[in-house]
Design a protein around this nucleic acid. Sequence first.
DNA 1: ACAGTTTATGCACACGTGAACAATTATTAT
DNA 2: ATAATAATTGTTCACGTGTGCATAAACTGT
Lengths: 352, 352
Amino acid sequence: MAVTIKDIARLANVSHTTVSRALNNSPLINDKTKNRIKQMADELNYTPNVNAKGLVTLRSYNIGLFFSTLSTGTSANFFYDVVRGVNMVIKDQYNLVVKSIDEFESNYNRISARQYDGIIVMSQTRADRVLIEHAISVGIPVVLLNRAAGDLNVGNILSDDLKGAYQLVDYILNCGHRQVGIIEGREGFQSTIQRKNGYIEALKDHGIEPNPELCIQGRYDVGSGYEAMRQLLKGKIRPSAVFCSNDDMAVGAIKAVIEADLQVPQDISIAGFDDNVFAAYLSPELTTVKRPIELISREGAAMIMRMIDHKLKSGKEHAKIPIEHITIESELVIRKSIAIFTPITATRKVGE
Amino acid sequence: MAVTIKDIARLANVSHTTVSRALNNSPLINDKTKNRIKQMADELNYTPNVNAKGLVTLRSYNIGLFFSTLSTGTSANFFYDVVRGVNMVIKDQYNLVVKSIDEFESNYNRISARQYDGIIVMSQTRADRVLIEHAISVGIPVVLLNRAAGDLNVGNILSDDLKGAYQLVDYILNCGHRQVGIIEGREGFQSTIQRKNGYIEALKDHGIEPNPELCIQGRYDVGSGYEAMRQLLKGKIRPSAVFCSNDDMAVGAIKAVIEADLQVPQDISIAGFDDNVFAAYLSPELTTVKRPIELISREGAAMIMRMIDHKLKSGKEHAKIPIEHITIESELVIRKSIAIFTPITATRKVGE
DNA sequence: ACAGTTTATGCACACGTGAACAATTATTAT
DNA sequence: ATAATAATTGTTCACGTGTGCATAAACTGT
């Protein structure tokens, strides 16, 4: 049997109330007894019973980190950065509970405010909405990462994928490319749509009509990038550059190009998205868009902690939580996987 | 306020005990009332309070997944496979709580049997021993993955890294290479030592004395592979093949080779370890050793659940948990990053 | 010295659940 | 029909912690 505050109380000849107060640093307790009790607790290796504590304080000390899916569509580097970022911030104040939303089979009843003090949703798809609404309805603070919250009353941190993709494709076009293809992400994901839209807008702004034959669906994994590129190579029109919706697919695409006895970027240029750890070490080094995933995750963790604190302070009832929305800029990373046909400076107007 | 069994009891005109029993499928309760109560619970969206439940059943429904570190030395693909594997098995029966051991700062008091029903340690280093001993001492079932348990009384699942490395280096030597270098993993990690030993044994069995100049320390990340390879290329003796202790470092090493205007595998052959998702898509496709990380993790999760169940059945006291040890074979994956100078079959004796 | 005030501690209850034991009702055997 | 037995339900307590209220002790000002 583990030691409880009652055990300490008995040994210290005080009531368990005093022990409880002492260990929680209550100002009601004399400093002398407080220190004495703290020391005893230390010596006895006292560990508070989280269950008993949570039962009365209505807290669980769990923070949920929910991904839309943990199978296809979530790249390993992405996942790793997210968990690391969140973990870095919450430290040992909370337990980090990792879940995959697609496992719930739309039975969200088990998700209660008593089980999670807060939930961070790394959201890829609108289908997550049901879960988020459930969490809100039972009074759990929610932070949504990676896609726009829309009318949902949750904290929100996102990177501007559309803008990132736009800048990248704009750069590709400024390099003189005209037939630019795209390997899209997993169907239904918001990021897939955003990046495609950035691609389309950039093309249009350069007076080019997007060609459906140059748009191939992928799934964000290496294999799908490879398959998609092979498909592109079989097509009537050969693109001179291909924008892969993430770096993983870019690896697969490069492989397909090389297998076809062509060279990157001389014959076909390739760009990615994310700037994962491998991007700089591929051959050729990958031109891509840096999406600060770890930063987003850290910010998300900090935000959920603010929201939890606020909820605690403002009376234990369903309080209005001040909602914050933060957008984190992505950044074009120019390396060597895009061939330059036109001196770029020439196509840019000064000041733009 | 959320609904409790007492609320249901009031509405159903029974005692809360009856409700508790009905929902836990006790045989003591009449099927008719049982169904009636279950239906009511359903309609009222009843969610059991885990804290209250845990307080009396002595369970937390948390399974800890502890990594030695979440910063340098844990590759993203590895991490992803582990979490996915474990998550796949425990489903929604347990919460998966991810922690990094190096964050505890050797204060393990917060880890109690009430907080974790079981702990899976994905262990890289012997330093984890202190944590594991603490967990055992407070009665938490522990499964150790990835390195040998030694005298520790824990479940154990590991891949035979030494053998895997041996087979790989043996293959390299059989291909006719004589100057074989190694880029080692992060210092102090068990896997680093195992793989190096496999390398050394293979060399010796071929009558070659390991050359310290061809052994460079890495850290398991891409960048360190790149740096290590550059260092090797600067050395007096140029290796004809280099065994990188994981695939991530192999990516970095290949980069360094190409940057030096050399070709893989014609000028320098490269091999990796792990067989991560990228291995087959590099150019050249990477020869490596498949380590079934996801399988190990699934087995580990299944094992910890068996141990927890056993502990529950055999009276709630510190019961002797039957300890299992499982070794999972790794597998040589021959692709194209090792140049073949000698017909391999010629160097093999039949039946060996 | 005495009332008033501050400081320090204890008592009793609540949180939601499960289980031992008691009590009631239904069923069976004689 | 009645005792014995089985089936069902209820009563009460415990788990470990925190908090409102009561109480005791120490201090203050006059």
